[in-house]
Design a protein around this nucleic acid. Structure first.
Lengths: 224, 224
DNA sequence: TGCTCGGGCTTACGTTGTAAGCTTATGACG
DNA sequence: CGTCATAAGCTTACAACGTAAGCCCGAGCA
């Protein structure tokens, strides 16, 4: 039982988890620059300083948010083909970073790796070791996959417009500049105008293309 | 001649280039969080608001800085082997991002690509097209290389300590936590303690390992 | 000589993260 | 049941940030 006492018309008590969840929700829907201690507190029906009873600082809050994003990533399964396991966790990572587009930006310079991050890290290394990679090759394989995954996510956030209005504005701007583009950057114009404009560009399939190339290449370097 | 007039004891006049250069120098040596309009102005012997005669806003300043970093990257040469050309520009990119560790963090969400960025972009696409890649494969090759390059740079900034003191503090902390690490993350402990602690970890060689694997893989997909 | 105006300077405002201290409900214990 | 410590809220306050508005001075030209 242990109800919160009979006079439960009062708002639910704050705790670290509720703070982090609200922070993630706020950043997800309003953009990262909206995440302000006062606004977050407001969202929770509370004053800014009250948050500091549950997070040590804004940096601590951000660390917590990042680790929650890592917690959303499906760790690789240990049984079955290592390549499909790695592919699935890579895709899961891209999806998580896509749901929380602010996260990739927070990872820069942030050295406090949370438990979810460490745990995922550990699971991936275990998967590779179990697949027969030497320690040296495990390091290579890990480094390579993560570089690709995070780099792809970074580019995706960079280039794909956040909202529909942004997209329209950007398209408009690009059309205006198209003349200059054609003249100054002919190869870019060729590829953009001659290929992407026709067949389009799908981030998801682009992602797995490169991913598979990497995994294939790594597979040939197992046990040696 | 056109000396700045005879009474040249006055300080040199400000201009956009001097502002950007000073901003880069400040961020390089003091860290990105030191880059403040007031401090930057101070560095130039000027008041904060004077900077706004040469940059439209702080965002504009940051855009300009990023493009100057892109300008440091050697574009690929058009003659010779495409793989070595791509390898050289990749290495040049990593080096530039290493000289200016704040740059990779600024690229997130920044959609205003400057001329140096566009020009490099164009040169890389031209190199790939010249090497015989189809338009479709050119897009794949470009996307893949950039994802890897920027992702690697991102990880490098993330994990390598900025200064010697930071490094010492981090090493100390890691030793304290080593027990927990061993227990909770056995595979991570194995790889870190059993391999990296012995042979070390060199970012530069790690970088070219993955890069070469990618370039080799792409080479097999030319002209089809 | 006087006007224009680019490029400095001063002042001021709103917003941010957070330190310091006050208040109040809760739950343990004499 | 009363008392009192403690956790968790609130209020106030401050320094630092980006930048809008407007002043002012000196150089170049009529």
């Amino acid at each position: 039982m242990t109800r919160p006492t009979r006079k439960s018309r009062k708002r639910a008590p704050l705790n670290r988890e509720r703070v982090l969840d609200a922070a993630i929700a706020l950043a997800d829907q309003g953009g990262f620059e909206l995440l302000t201690m006062r606004r977050l507190a407001n969202e929770l029906g509370v004053e800014a300083m009250s948050l500091y009873n549950h997070v040590a600082s804004k940096d601590d809050l951000l660390d917590g948010m990042v680790d929650l994003v890592f917690a959303e990533i499906e760790p690789p399964s240990t049984d079955g083909d290592w390549k499909t396991a790695m592919q699935k966790r890579a895709i899961s990572t891209r999806e998580a970073l896509g749901r929380h587009r602010w996260a990739i930006g927070l990872m820069e310079g942030r050295t406090n790796h949370g438990p979810a991050n460490m745990s995922l890290h550990n699971a991936v290394l275990g998967c590779l070791r179990g697949a027969g990679f030497s320690m040296e090759m495990t390091v290579h394989a890990y480094s390579m996959q993560d570089a690709y995954i995070y780099g792809f996510a970074l580019q995706e956030v960079d280039m794909s417009p956040e909202s529909a209005e942004d997209f329209a504005a950007e398209a408009q701007r690009q059309m205006c500049e198209y003349q200059a583009l054609l003249a100054d950057y002919p190869h870019a114009a060729e590829v953009v105008g001659g290929h992407i404009a026709k067949v389009g560009y799908d981030y998801a399939t682009e992602f797995v293309f490169g991913l598979d190339l990497i995994l294939e290449g790594l597979d040939k370097l197992r046990d040696n």
